[in-house]
Design a protein around this nucleic acid. Sequence first.
RNA 1: GCCCCCAUAGUCUAGCGGCCCAGGACGUCACCCUUUCAAGGUGAAGAUCGCGGGUUCGAAUCCCGCUGGGGGUACCA
Length: 504
Amino acid sequence: MAEVRVRFAPSPTGSLHIGGARLVMYNVLFAHGEVPRLGKRGSFILRIEDTDQKRLVEGSVQNLMDGLRWLGLDWDEGPDVGGPYGPYVQSERKHSYKEAAGHLVATGHAYHCFCSPERLQAVREEQQRQKLPPGYDRHCRNLSPGEVQAKLDAGESHVIRFKMPLEGETRFIDLLRGEIVYQNDKIDDLVILKGDGFPTYHLAVVVDDHEMNITHVTRGPEWIPTAPIHVQLYKAFGWDAPIFAHMPLILSPTGGKLSKRHGGVSLNDFREAGYLPEALLNYFALLGWSLDGKTEIYSFDDLLEHFTLERVSSSPSTFDRDKLDWLNQQWINHHLTVEDLALRVLPILIGAGMVADGPVDETHPQFAQVKEASALLKDRIRFLTEAPDLMSYFLQDELEDYDAALLVPKKVEPQQALTALEAVQEMLPELDLSNVENTEAKLRALADDLGMKAGQLFMPIRVAATGRTQSPGLFETLRTIGQDRVSTRVDAAVTKLREYVTAA
RNA sequence: GCCCCCAUAGUCUAGCGGCCCAGGACGUCACCCUUUCAAGGUGAAGAUCGCGGGUUCGAAUCCCGCUGGGGGUACCA
């Protein structure tokens, strides 16, 4: 059975950008969805490209893997789970690159370059002054073997550069764009092995992708200009090149790459802001891909069933926070069970000190309470992080202080509101709040007796019970808050309103 | 500067030569539902398919040029 192998190869230089997360999703959907549907085996590999020792950020590999797992994106082979093609960290594969670079020198496809950074800098500045395309002037390309040996013997520091063909063209197929052609003479002799013995990206990807039997190379579009170099490297090694698929970029609303200025860009930011993995994946799918132009809501399973790489758009798309927010709300309001919502909100409530510390599952002592609150709030919560605020009057005995003026609805006199609330106070002991229908009937009748519109009576009660002018349905809210707390709160509200009326 | 990629409403997209004087969604506005806020329902505004040339009986769809946007141009990935 033919095997398709794809990989995500980030450099551990910080937190995972959502563009990277989307790329991983595309890879997983391809390897675990589209490929199996075609009757082939698909594998997704995670590889760490840590060849730039200067930019490494401690902890970013772990952070990256945590983030991907949180999204539900898993890999078949990788630094933590291992696999037949390990190691999956480039700094541990150094010998392969050195050997490969040496091989290219031996076969005349690469050469030692002894130019100093200062000389390169000077060359570049001169080119800019003359408005010439910047690039290496191939100074060391034609050094005689004797000269090279002498410099090596003298211990001069050096790098290895790839000998790009000086004429002809390089063609390759991009899965999303078709054939792309580059003129070879426009392409530089790039460094493939650095002075510190580490490979540059160009050598490392080619060697690793080949050694790991990668069949499809997916990556960001910023790699298109260097793809012909990679193709030439494959050729120089005598290897078959993989299929390239340069995925579209995510643009910021102001144009250009998505950056920190526009809220978050790292996966962690979204996680902390109360987004669901489901909503994020759904949004990633909608951004640059569509099944039919009509369907908006996709579960990950739906995507596994329908996603195809060929339908990914080749044009970049702008990140639209509003649409993501809408999707998040859609997922919470309509696609999560009450139980599930309660479970997801629980750790946030614990973190906010809204409920006691305890196990983050159904055995938490207040789980039933959280679940009840979740049931009522499910239709109006947009982000999980809103839970502590929206649920506080259900979960805490004490109400946060509120302005007495809120107890007086529009077009109602304070005295009238007070009279109404006092009537409610009096009726409360006879009311069975657990019976929602009955509560509603009684309170509506009371409004009639008082000569008020139902809404005019309900608002003071709502504010008295919750301290807010917004809440879920009043009668369910009262039932969930419970008889005793409602009584206490109405008492407090009556006192508060009396003071307010007197003062006025 | 040079090289490359991209181009349908503010945004994401459907469309692969006639079904499109362009469909869906977000956002916006209005109305309905309604005890508040959401959710939900209905509807409206919003695109001379970036511009100009071709090809064709016929083009958003194919070709060329231009313009605009983006990317690359490192001993970073």
